[in-house]
């Protein structure tokens, strides 16, 4: 038990600390690297909860794909991050004030914490306990049976996002040279060059005039 607790505090501490470093690092590349560490710690927390499949997904999808993409974007876009951050610092006083007010409201809310009668019934087990069924099976059952409708609609949202990205950014440029494979394959030797018999001593001047 103490080992689990120790592991939890280790991962949780590393996740929070790395999360803080993401926003405070001067070099944006370092920020992305700290972000990767945050993802890894979160994956560790998932493993502790018995959700190995989610932990693997987090590592593969977020670290393997999303973070690498971030890294590319950070390196390729010409953004002056120092300038960016200078502006952000001006808003700290007002932002802090709003944060304090929100915190005060949350505290008041927690003081008045009260559950309805039926909450316990509502919460019970949309999925079986972790010991009874494997991760993947439980997630599959949720995604493809109970929430099939949501899953499909989410797919449509992604379709709209794709159409939108193409509509708003795709341009047909004039004068772009594109490879046309069928045209290349259909080309015959005589389209490409011409055999000219050059008489010795006369040069090619007259021959090219003829062609």
């Amino acid at each position: 038990m103490t080992l689990t607790a120790g592991a939890f505090y280790l991962f949780a501490f590393v996740a929070v600390a790395a999360g803080f470093l993401v926003i405070s690092a001067r070099n944006p590349v370092h920020s992305v690297l700290w972000l990767i560490l945050t993802f890894f710690s979160a994956a560790g927390l998932f493993v502790l909860m018995g959700a190995e499949f989610l932990a693997m997904l987090l590592v593969i999808v977020y670290v393997g794909a999303v973070a690498v993409l971030f890294l590319f974007v950070v390196m390729m876009l010409d953004i002056n991050f120092a300038q960016f951050r200078k502006g952000a610092l001006q808003y700290i006083p007002i932002g802090g004030l709003v944060g304090l007010i929100l915190l005060a409201e949350l505290v008041t809310l927690v003081m008045a914490w009260q559950f309805g009668d039926k909450v316990a019934d509502n919460v019970t087990a949309p999925i079986p306990a972790a010991e009874q069924v494997e991760n993947v099976k439980a997630m599959g059952a949720i995604l493809y049976t109970d929430y099939l409708f949501i899953f499909q609609t989410a797919g449509l949202i992604l379709l709209v996002a794709m159409i939108g990205a193409i509509v708003l950014t795709h341009r047909q440029r004039a004068g772009v040279k594109r490879q046309n494979i069928s045209k290349q394959v259909a080309r015959k030797p005589k389209d490409a060059y011409e055999m000219v018999e050059v008489k010795s001593g006369e040069g090619i001047g007259s021959a090219s005039k003829k062609g």
Partner: peptide
């Protein structure tokens, strides 16, 4: 968080006026 459900039917069943309507649900 305060009712344990997001289904309209269950919500209508769980959320009652008077003493049981948690302030959290109203917020």
């Amino acid at each position: 968080g305060f009712t344990g459900t997001i289904s309209f039917d269950l919500l209508a069943d769980s959320v009652k006026t008077g003493e049981h309507a948690g302030i959290g649900v109203i917020v």
